[in-house]
Structures are given as structure tokens and as C-alpha cells.
Simulated assay, not measured.
Amino acid sequence: MRILITAETYPPDINGSAQFARRLARGMLERGHEVHVAAPMPTSGPSRIMDDAGVTEHRFRSHHAFTHPYFRLCFPWEIVREVARLFDDVRPDVVHVQCHYILGRLVVREAVRRGVRVVGTNHFVPENIEPFLPFPQWFVRGYRKVSWWDIARVYGRCDVITAPTPLAVRTMVDNGVPDRAIAVSNGIQAGDYEAAAGEQIEHPDHPIVLFCGRLAVEKNVDELIEAVALIPREKNVHAEIVGEGEQLDRLVKLAHEHGVADRVHFLGFLTDEQLRTAYLRADVFCQPGTAELQSLVTLEAMSASTPVVLANARALPHLADEGRNGYLFSPGNSGDLATKLQLVLDAPPEQRRAMGERSRDMVSRHSFAKTLDTFERLYTGAES
């Protein structure tokens, strides 16, 4: 097939949606399909076509969204003719859009006009953007309603609608998206994060709580720092925080204010291999975010046989088998988070190993190969 994947955020952006879109493009290419990606230019300048090891990227002129650290917007009057030209040149058999914003809606409109099959996957909830809106709360509440109306309008034109988890599907339907959406996991290549046979991972002489992700407001990393401060100092629990983002300076300051700057380590951006080692080295993985539609980093940590402590919010409860691979904590309650972390860290080594093994077992249902199989069937209309 000739597949056109459309993404409003795509590498070099670092977030789950962008990473999924690129893994999907590479996975479909490896299966012998011709793959094109439509995405905003990551920098200023005119639209251009680039090659990414066989995937053809059609990058459209874009502009920095002034309230967000990296998100870029395409203006419709600048690209509408270029979108039509893209369809003329590529003639896709199927279009797979990843978001409802400007580029996504223009691609959906053009595909529908030409009778091209459209699969729409939603990775978005308004809470992803709300922290970046410098407006009063009444405006933000209105924005949330309008956002869901807009999502329903754009995705309602798709032949197939998907989201990463059943909970994400239910959230969409509850907010007006047609009740025909289905759950398709983002998928994970679990073997990429497992320890190799005989591999020895150096572990420091103190317990490690790991967080990975954008340092954004909705990730609630401040709650993790506060939880570390609540754990008795003699336990010498350290937090390793992987990622970059607009909250970094605030979080560093918070660690100093709580007297744990010596035990909270900001590691910044890591390579894939460095991240894999971080997962394997950690005693427990923590995801305090409350806007997760699946959380790929949690799946990656579970693939590395790591116990988890997750916020009881959005899709995260699907990834915690309470007491068997970890625990859920009440969002906003740093004391509860501290208690749950200690339940894992104070458990005997054999119990922690069993919890990690349970994490690894749970990931098997999120095989990336199964995800590719499902989307191939959806692209051809064999499954709906």
C-alpha cells in the first residue's frame, strides 16, 4: 500500500504521539509498504520534502506556538494548496491522521473529497494544551468544550476511529466522538528493553525511583519530588528524572526547597541505550501524569521488568495490577505516593522481582507487531 501518515507533532519533537507516529512509519516501511509522512516543519522556512531512511517526509511551513516550548502550527492559508498537491503527487491508498489540528483536518478533508480511506487515531485530550493557555479559567473551560466538539467533527469524517486504550475510547465517545471508535494499543517492542542474557547492570547502593517524560505541568513531577522528601532520609531514596521541558527550572528549585536536591537527579535527554539502562537500573518506575492516554514510557519500563507506581488517572490504571506489579496512588496526594513507593522499595527482593516479572508479562498484550497487524487490516477495510 501507499500510506500517508499525518502528524501534528513528529520527531525531533519528543513526546509519545510523535514517537508513535515515527515507529508506525518505520514499521509499515519494514513491511514493504510505501510510506509518506505529512508533518509541520520543525524550524522556520518553506515547505520541503525530506527522506528519513526510506520514509518520505513532507514537511509543511509552520510557525512556533508562542505559549508552547516546541509545538508548531501550520496556517491553513499557507498550506491548503500544498496539501492538495501532496495528494496529486502521492496518490495514497490510505491516510492515517494522528491529530485533529490544522494539518490533520486539511488532510482529512482532502482525503474525503477524493474518496481515499481515512483512519484517525486520537492521542489528544484538551488537558495536554490547557497548561499553555495564558487565559482565565472560564476561557479554559470553554476551550475544552470547543476542543471536544472539534475533535468529534474531524474524526467523525474518518472511516475508522481509534485510540490507544479502551478508556481513551470511552473518553472520546463521552465527549461527542461517534460511538464506533475502537482501541488499538500504541504497541511496544518489549525485547528492546529486556536485559540480555548474562548482562550485568551496575546498580548504586541506594534505591532509585525513575520518571521519564516531558517536564510539563500535567506530568506532575513536583508530586514525585515532594514524595521523595516525605520518605525518611535514612532510606536514602533517590529519584532520577529523565526528560526536558518548560518546568525544569521550577522543579530544580522545588528539590532545593524540600532539601532533596542531593537525591533528585535531572538527567535531561538520554539516548535510547542510556534510557534502556535507566529502566533496568531502576527499582521502581513512577508516572504521576494525569493526562496519559496510554503512556509509552510506562510500557517501556514494564518491558524492563520494573515495578510501577502510577497515578490513578486516565489510562494508567490499566497498567497497574494492584499489589502484583505495583500500586496506584491518588493524584495530587504526595503522601499517598510516598507510601506506595515505600511499599515497593521496602518489599523483599524476591517480591520486587516477582512484581517486575508481572510487569513484563502484562506488556505482552501490547506487542507492536500486533499493532501493525491491526492497522494493516484497518487500512484495507478488512477490520473495522
Rank of each mutant, 00 (worst) to 15 (best):
I241T: 02
N236T: 05
A320V: 11
L230V: 02
N236I: 01
A291P: 00
D321Q: 12
V252W: 02
Q294F: 14
R314G: 09
S303L: 12
V242N: 02
E234W: 10
F269K: 14
Q274S: 13
E292D: 05
V308S: 04
F285C: 08
T271V: 10
D321N: 08
A315P: 06
G268M: 09
L316I: 00
E300S: 12
Q294W: 04
V242E: 01
F266S: 00
A282E: 11
L310C: 12
V260H: 15
I231W: 04
N312F: 15
H256T: 07
E273D: 15
L254C: 06
A282N: 02
P307R: 12
L316N: 05
R263D: 06
I231M: 11
F269Q: 11
D283K: 06
T298L: 03
Q274T: 14
L254Y: 12
E300G: 03
E234L: 05
G289M: 08
L316S: 00
V284E: 01
T277E: 09
Q247G: 12
E292K: 07
L248S: 07
T290N: 04
M302K: 08
I231D: 09
F269E: 12
L319F: 15
Q294A: 15
T290G: 03
A282G: 04
E273H: 13
L267V: 08
G243C: 02
H238P: 04
H258G: 01
L316C: 00
V309K: 00
A304R: 14
R276V: 15
A320N: 06
K253I: 06
G243V: 04
T298C: 08
G268Y: 06
L270H: 04
Y279W: 02
R314D: 10
L293K: 05
R233S: 13
H265N: 11
V297A: 11
T271L: 08
L254N: 13
K235Y: 13
L310V: 05
A261H: 13
V308A: 03
V297L: 12
L248I: 10
V252R: 10
E244A: 13
L319Q: 14
H238I: 01
G259T: 14
I241P: 00
L270N: 02
H238N: 10
L280V: 00
A304P: 03
E257F: 12
Q287R: 12
N312G: 08
R233Q: 09
A239Y: 09
V264R: 03
V284Q: 01
F269V: 12
G245P: 13
V308H: 02
V284M: 01
R263A: 15
A239E: 02
K253N: 13
L275P: 03
D262A: 01
Q274N: 11
L254T: 07
H238R: 12
A278V: 03
G245S: 07
V284Y: 01
L296Q: 07
A301Y: 08
H258M: 09
D249A: 15
V264F: 09
A291N: 03
D272I: 02
G243L: 02
L296W: 05
K253R: 15
L296H: 07
R281Y: 06
G259C: 14
S303W: 05
P317S: 09
F285W: 15
E234G: 05
L267S: 15
A304H: 11
R276T: 14
I231H: 04
T271F: 09
T298Y: 07
V252N: 05
P232D: 08
Q274W: 14
E257L: 15
